[in-house]
Design a protein around this nucleic acid. Sequence first.
RNA 1: GGCUAGGUAGCUCAGCUGGUUAGAGCGUGGCACUCAUAAUGCCGAGGUCGUGGGUUCGAGUCCCACCCUAGCCA
Length: 689
Amino acid sequence: MTRQILVTHALPYANGPLHLGHALEAVQTDIWVRFQRLRGHDCLFVCAEDTHGTPIMIRAQQQGQTPEELIAASAAEHLRDYQQLLIGHDQFHSTHSEENRKLCAELYERLQAGGYIARRSVRQAYDEQAQMFLPDRYVRGTCPRCKSVDQYGDSCEVCGSTYSPAELIDPVSTLSNTPPVWRESEHLFFRLGAFETMLREWLASGSLSGAVRAKLDEWFAAGLQDWDISRDQPYFGFEIPGSPGKFFYVWFDAPIGYIASFVALAARRGLDFDRYWKSETATELHHFIGKDISYFHTLFWPAVLHGAGLRRPTNVCVHGFLTINGQKMSKTRGTFITARSYLDSLPPEPLRYYFAAKLSGGIEDIDLSLEDFIARTDSDLVGKLVNIASRCAGFIERGGGRLATALPDAELYAQFAAASEEIAALYEQREYGSAMRQIMNLADRANKYIDQHKPWAMAKDPARSEEVRAIATQGINLFRVLMVYLAPVLPKIAEAAGRFLGGPLDAWQAAATPLLGSALAPYQPLAQRLDPAVVFRLVASEPAAAPTKATPAKSAPAKTVATKPATAAPAATAAPGADAAATIGIADFARVDLRVARVLAASHVEGSDKLLQLTLDLGAGQRNVFSGIRASYAPEKLLNRLVIVVANLEPRKMRFGVSAGMVLCASGSEGGIFLLDVDSGAQPGMKVS
RNA sequence: GGCUAGGUAGCUCAGCUGGUUAGAGCGUGGCACUCAUAAUGCCGAGGUCGUGGGUUCGAGUCCCACCCUAGCCA
């Protein structure tokens, strides 16, 4: 039976670039969608740019643009990233669209008519200079519990306690640096508590994972509170009908954006709204989200839908976060890998495969270990999978370019084909890691088969050419089955494999019957090994944590990446010299961000007979560096000279100021200090590797 | 702080309702092979399953406490 399915992943917020955490979610979702389509189901995939809220408004002001300009530029960037990641959205829309405006008004009116909207006064921080109410994150002050200074208005990063901005000691608005005043304002509330029975019933009937249910149980136990869905002007969003000066909170209109995106798609394709959104429809609705926003998607969202007379989600698929080399991502304080920086240097499919290999249906975090990433790509994708086609193709080609008309080992093929349902079940449950393991097991068996039959040995005897062709035909067919199973993960490679095999791999069913007697196109390499230097540059080349007081993220703190040493290098091979350091891996070297810099100014340091104070141009910005080279270099001799700098050295506070980097020099036991030189043509900011 | 989830070989992970010598892939040591993108195959070494208690004939698997990591606290 053909299922009708609508799928979404979380809307990217127009406040910054996509990072690999976004990529993880998009890839997880896209694999599921491609799998469903491959199985013959009718699966739509929609998404939208999430555009509203105070952070967008503030940022647009800071950048001297209108919010509309900002969100348009952001959406274009996001869409480009998604496309390069091979995410096959049917529609990428915007929450700042007419469709969404209408839907928000309509849903709100239905909720109001149902008696689900309450009004009451709220006391909130107000910035008199900026003339606006302040979201909690825009108030900072001293933590009332542990007295740590400069903490957010809603929680303390040091002691982890949560509180309200009013409890902060010495609160200050981050917009104007003035102390806020407290003002009353009437807000609109969604009466979530009215839906408890419905929600309990919904979660019991649904297919939510165990961990998500456990969390929901906790929330039920704590009691469902009303949800504040309004914000006072000025606010970038939709004004609430009948409440001048009040706007829908961004989290109210964002999920409705899922529907808006569908509506835009429906207009293009002539789809029936009720079929997808009417209460009790048989059409499935699956939302893929990160664990940080499950409250919104498993409580507010089903309740809003139900209250407005619409269907509830079939499932909310919650995943964990992405860490990089074991470290959590932290946009506000560290570096992180943007989707862009990855895509500018590496192909999308190894990353898709790697994510697939580590994803499960649970909410555990998954780690992107760069070394592991390289190993898996090289070993699984190239050494095992693609190798099967690669090693067989030559035999077919030399034998006339056609496959044999029968399989020498039909039983083995049948075993490969029989794995189909088990693998499909794993995809369906988002147990991609297990699915990948199964598939790679089969790949091992395919390689073993070829090894055991040694077609290269037979090929020496012209009389056995048919046997050789048969063995190779078997190998190619085993490869083809695996490629069908992997098509949701590796769409481009599957496409290329389809061209090689003489027909597209566009149906799961195709694995059931072998390809016989047909001609093969000349074999082209289907996947390449990864260059470790390029991969490790991902963490090394991110702009060194410019400590921008970035506008806070819309929801929870943004997840991002920090870097960590890739494991220690193995024991050194024969130590060449007594004072040679132990061998390090390329990963260790890549952690050092060496840059070309130009000396803009140099001067003696009062009170030091060793140091010179240098102002360096690193291309992207200037740095102050203290360097102990006074004995060998006069300041005026250094002006305009190019030097090599360790750009990511932890800034060091010295008696004379902060030194942000280290200038590289050679020195020996004979005395003397020698700056490293750079050939002409090099420009400040260039990376040294 | 409360709650939820995770802590298993060098690395990345499997281990369902407790049951014989704890598994896989990668990496590593040895061997074989040369068709294949320094690919593949065979054999081996590697773990007191976060720590400390407890229940049980028997615990990685159940209970308690603690430590570490992540998320949520609307």
